[in-house]
Write a protein that binds this DNA or RNA. Structure first.
Ligand SMILES: NC(=O)c1ccc[n+]([C@@H]2O[C@H](COP(=O)([O-])OP(=O)(O)OC[C@H]3O[C@@H](n4cnc5c(N)ncnc54)[C@H](O)[C@@H]3O)[C@@H](O)[C@H]2O)c1
Ligand SMILES: NC(=O)c1ccc[n+]([C@@H]2O[C@H](COP(=O)([O-])OP(=O)(O)OC[C@H]3O[C@@H](n4cnc5c(N)ncnc54)[C@H](O)[C@@H]3O)[C@@H](O)[C@H]2O)c1
Lengths: 213, 213
DNA sequence: TCCCTGTTGTTACGGATTTCACAACCGTAG
DNA sequence: CTACGGTTGTGAAATCCGTAACAACAGGGA
């Protein structure tokens, strides 16, 4: 009965939410799809259509109540609660992730950290002790975690993913440069700056660097 | 004249290239769209269709020559040369990016680094001296750079983007949590782990954490 | 040589997504 | 009370994209 919502739509909602939060900080109380769209480089129709999958949140002639719509989006996305995150791999990137201050305010709490390196195990990052990744399954079965973050080298990533999945995790944020294989019911997002650059080069490859003469 | 290639296709090519490089490392010399697709969770038809935008690279009955196709993809994407990258913002994230060893082997060379903090200016990261971001325009006009990486706080990001664009940069990798506004001819990719998590939560929100009882 | 297996390149189809366009509506001002 | 400018929500149209299907063909074996 719940109409199937396209994934592209779901992926845009957090962007809307982020913009609404920024508008709220600026003291704006209402916003039209037009104005929001300009800010996000999205057509007003796109925004209205996306929102219409979930209900009618606007007021004709006025627009949307900024805080009201933000609250609705947070509810839709499930951001109106805390999420427990486990981080696997505490190398350079893993440490940076653990120390990044941007997750906590959004309700993502790193509650456990794992590594396989004996030199790393037992140390602490951000008040969290680094556990042996051999204990991953055991720990996760006793301590519910919602999201797994994979920050290990590519050659170890699938193994880590498999372990997270078999322990019952339903969402994985993968930083390793590979395509994780997971069952359909597990959500995966990949972050790879190299891939991002490699697609941009296609569009600029005919051009001399910065139009140098 | 050149048939318009969908951006989704371009975005997949680096993924194919990455997989081919991995196959080559494993000593594989040929691969079918079927096999490649299984590895990447992409249908074989998708792969063949994507490649057909650019030519005929396979051999019926056999598949694709791994190294041959990889070379073709690298040529198509413009990866058969070095790219000069400028990094703006040398905070925690910026330093991690500068020290990350994954860019260089792919031909992305960080040739300049900028920050606005007097305490950071003059220090070096990875053998590159940190320059005053006030000198961004001057420097870029004299030293051709292809790609700008933005790793400054959100409130400063649009200003940095504007400066990069006005200096003639055609590609930007943005790590700040905002949507940069750029002219149509500038390529932009955004990296935001928080947004990635916030879209995954939609799919797992009805579920108790890890099926805890 | 001929046949069989395996796999490509491509066209046609259908589904998904975006855009269009407008009736309905809100709040305000006259 | 009516008219008006502004904006939503939404079907219908247009566009974009992915999938299916198959003719064509390469290589190998009988
Ligand atoms: N550093 C970056 O900026 C960056 C950016 C994008 C992607 N990445 C990717 O993220 C991953 C990590 O990068 P890094 O620079 O932190 O590497 P790193 O070598 O510094 O850290 C990897 C960590 O993973 C641990 N590890 C290895 N195998 C493990 C296993 N089976 N279980 C648990 N832990 C294990 C290692 O002990 C190490 O601590 C790599 O795949 C890299 O390509 C890094
Ligand atoms: N650290 C992470 O893991 C991470 C992950 C994802 C996104 N981000 C985002 O990346 C950005 C940087 O994060 P961070 O943790 O490194 O922050 P940070 O505060 O440690 O570093 C920001 C740096 O930018 C510099 N800066 C500020 N304004 C500038 C300007 N106008 N020109 C040049 N330099 C300027 C500051 O001096 C500082 O060195 C933020 O927008 C953050 O939200 C960070």
């Amino acid at each position: 009965m719940t109409l199937e919502i396209p994934e592209v739509v779901i992926n845009r909602l957090p962007v809307y939410a982020r913009a609404l939060a920024a508008l709220a900080m600026d003291g704006e109380t209402v916003v039209s799809s037009q104005t929001l769209g300009e800010r996000l480089d999205v057509t007003p129709a796109q925004i209205r259509k996306d929102l219409s999958y979930f209900g009618r949140f606007g007021k004709q002639g006025r627009g949307y109540n900024v805080l009201g719509l933000l609250a609705k989006l947070r509810e839709i996305l499930g951001l109106d609660r805390k999420w427990r995150v486990a981080l696997v791999g505490v190398g350079r990137l893993g440490q940076a992730i653990a120390e990044y201050g941007g997750f906590e305010p959004q309700g993502f709490q790193i509650v456990a950290v794992f590594d396989s390196d004996p030199a790393a195990i037992g140390t602490t990052v951000k008040d969290v002790v680094v556990r042996d990744s051999a204990d991953l399954d055991t720990f996760l079965r006793q301590n519910p975690v919602d999201i797994g973050v994979v920050a290990v080298p590519g050659h170890a990533a699938q193994q880590v993913v498999d372990r997270l999945v078999s322990a019952g995790i339903r969402a994985i944020l993968n930083y390793a440069p590979m395509t994780p294989h997971v069952p359909a019911e597990v959500a995966v997002r990949n972050i790879d700056p190299v891939l991002a650059m490699q697609s941009m080069t296609f569009y600029i490859k005919r051009q001399d660097p910065m139009g140098a003469k």
